[in-house]
């Protein structure tokens, strides 16, 4: 490092707004897709486990006889709604409407909390009926898959809450970079929705 270079210019993150010429993407976008690829493998391993456990079992219960279909359907609708409000939050920033962005990201957070509250009631009902992970192979994979998914929902809530609250100050001085951050958070959130789209029929309906 030359002595004439200021410390602030040394540590500036590259390609936060302008695309990296090597990839055609800003760096964080490639980063989130790499992370999502690892997430595909994580959930893929658990879905593979589910298939193996199911085909190896002589007595696999129908999910609909154990789980609450209306609550599962409600949660699916809630998560789909949160996905559309998330993408609308990003679109609002693209249209330079910060007020609408706050509204849509706020609605996304509200949907995420509703999802977790419904899940809490579902889990409580199972525990009340003495259905625990050790009860059966089906309950074990149900709690593992939905529990891991729930942790991802909580992770999304933490990130989105930051971007809705203190993190949104970036809009004032670096609007494009902030818009990119929302796009990245959105990609993660849509992935969480995408996983649930498979979990719902596999665990609840089949």
């Amino acid at each position: 490092m030359s002595s004439g270079t200021s410390s602030s210019s040394i540590y500036v993150l590259p390609h936060t707004v302008e695309p990296n010429p090597e990839t055609g993407l800003f760096n964080a976008k490639l980063g989130i897709w790499l992370f999502l690829a690892s997430e595909v493998m994580l959930f893929g391993a658990l879905f593979s486990s589910y298939i193996l456990l199911r085909v190896s079992s002589v007595n696999w219960p129908l999910g609909s006889t154990i789980l609450n279909i209306p609550l599962g359907t409600l949660n699916t609708m809630v998560l789909i709604s949160s996905s559309v409000t998330m993408v609308m939050a990003w679109a609002s920033l693209k249209m330079k409407d910060f007020g609408k962005f706050k509204l849509y990201l706020g609605l996304t957070l509200l949907c995420a909390f509703i999802f977790l509250i419904v899940k809490y009631f579902e889990y409580s009902a199972k525990f009340h009926h003495h259905l625990f992970p050790e009860t059966s192979t089906y309950m074990a994979i149900y709690f593992t898959l939905t529990g891991l998914h729930g942790i991802h929902v909580i992770g999304g809530i933490i990130v989105n809450s930051y971007l809705w609250g203190p993190g949104s100050k970036m809009w004032l001085d670096q609007p494009e970079r902030f818009t990119n951050r929302i796009e990245i958070a959105g990609l993660y959130w849509h992935f969480v929705d995408l996983v649930w789209i498979f979990l719902f029929p596999v665990l609840y309906l089949l």
């Binding site: 993408v87 929705d193 995408l194 789209i197 498979f198 719902f200 029929p201």
Partner: peptide
Amino acid sequence: ITVALIIATFKASLVAGYFM
């Protein structure tokens, strides 16, 4: 199972294709 997974895959494609 086949029908449910076909519908789920189509829904996932919509999310990945348009929202993502």
